[in-house]
Amino acid sequence: MSSELTPRDKGNLPALGAPPLIRLDAYVAEDGSTVVNGHLLEMGGMRQPNEAILDAIAMFARTLGAPVAATVIDRSVMQVARLRVYPDGSSRTIADDEDLPPGRERTAAEEAAFPPLARVERIIQHAQREELHAAFVLASALREHLTLRRGAEDELSLEARAIEAYLAYLRGDYMLSTVLALTVARIRCRTDLNRAAPEVARATAAWQRLLDERQVTTRGQELQHMWERLAAEGLLLEPSHQAMAQAVRSRLERHGQAVAGLAAPPAVTAGEGPVAPEDKPLKPTRRGLRRFTRRPGRSTGSAP
């Protein structure tokens, strides 16, 4: 399909009925770091993330000679945007109900051309080169999109969150690492207790680096509940895990905050409470978002 043949409406915008050939994803971190399809974009000068995203996706559309769909998670404004970008450089946003319905069909379409495991390999490559910022942003983008598509409890979403937690630890952000790792542990305790101990151990390792006493207490009490539940179920088998469980209790006792008994909080009880309460909610997509709308013939990199 050529750009000249793209159907248009009365406002000379591409018609919504023009089918996208492929579906991409993009991510804007709170600090403005921008990712398109698992690649961190170079943001020179005063270039805005929305312009960089539209330029990158328009290149796909021109190469294919067909419309391209894209889902953008923009943490700088806490919103999801669903786009259609066309070979002539024009673009528009659509409402969620104008896209494929949520579920397996949409997920399969969004992941078909760019499998998540290929992105994990790229994250690992950045980490091996000690490019920890790039690795962390790519891991965050992967986790955000997998969670949006599949839900926080999906296996791939959990693996991406665990990778993100580990990279946060390597970067020295122990608070964020603890929060991310605790979410993984919390979900494992709900859905597959037999696999929970290693995740609780990872969360404990990050928690042991915390200095904020309030966070030490709050997060430590949840960890203690998890360890005690594992012990009650006969799943505290590894000596290293037993030592970690004791370390949590000892640290809390030093501050008079140890929790007596085995009464598990809602965070680790199946079916109760949010599984990822620290995940900040995103505003849903809607039509007509100006920052992602371009008229035909817009030159690459031009000012908004």
Rank of each mutant, 00 (worst) to 15 (best):
D99H: 11
G103P: 08
A113N: 11
S90N: 08
E131H: 14
R129I: 01
A135I: 10
Q48S: 11
R122M: 12
H133L: 13
P14D: 08
S76I: 00
G32I: 01
L132Y: 12
L146K: 01
A135G: 11
M46I: 08
S90R: 07
G44C: 00
M59A: 15
M43H: 01
R122I: 13
E30H: 04
A69Y: 07
V120E: 13
V85Y: 03
R82P: 02
T93V: 09
Q48W: 04
A135K: 08
S76E: 10
P67N: 06
D9S: 02
I123Q: 06
A61G: 08
I22P: 02
L24W: 02
G17V: 13
V35G: 04
G38W: 03
K10D: 10
E42G: 07
A66E: 15
T63V: 04
M46Q: 15
A108R: 11
E111L: 15
R149Q: 15
G44K: 13
A134L: 04
L83Q: 10
P49W: 05
G17M: 10
R75D: 15
G89S: 09
P102E: 09
R150G: 01
E111C: 09
P102C: 06
R119S: 12
A95R: 12
L117C: 00
V28M: 02
A52C: 05
A127T: 07
T107V: 12
G65T: 04
R119K: 09
P102I: 05
T71S: 13
D97W: 10
V137T: 15
V80P: 05
G44V: 08
A118W: 09
L16P: 03
L146C: 05
R122S: 14
L64C: 02
K10A: 14
S90D: 09
L40R: 06
Q48H: 11
G45P: 04
A95E: 14
G45Y: 03
M78F: 08
N37V: 00
A134F: 01
P101H: 01
L142V: 02
D31R: 03
I124T: 15
N37Q: 09
A113K: 06
D31S: 08
A29G: 04
R92S: 10
H133F: 13
Y27E: 08
G65N: 04
I22E: 13
A95K: 11
T63Y: 02
L100A: 10
R82M: 14
F60Y: 13
D96N: 10
L132T: 12
L13Y: 13
E42H: 11
R143K: 11
L24C: 15
A69M: 01
L83V: 08
R129T: 07
R92N: 11
S140Q: 15
R129K: 14
L40A: 04
H39G: 03
A134E: 14
R150E: 14
E42S: 11
V36P: 03
L148A: 12
M78Y: 05
I53F: 06
A58R: 04
L41K: 06
L142W: 01
P20H: 07
A69E: 12
R129S: 12
E105N: 03
V77Y: 01
L83S: 10
L100S: 09
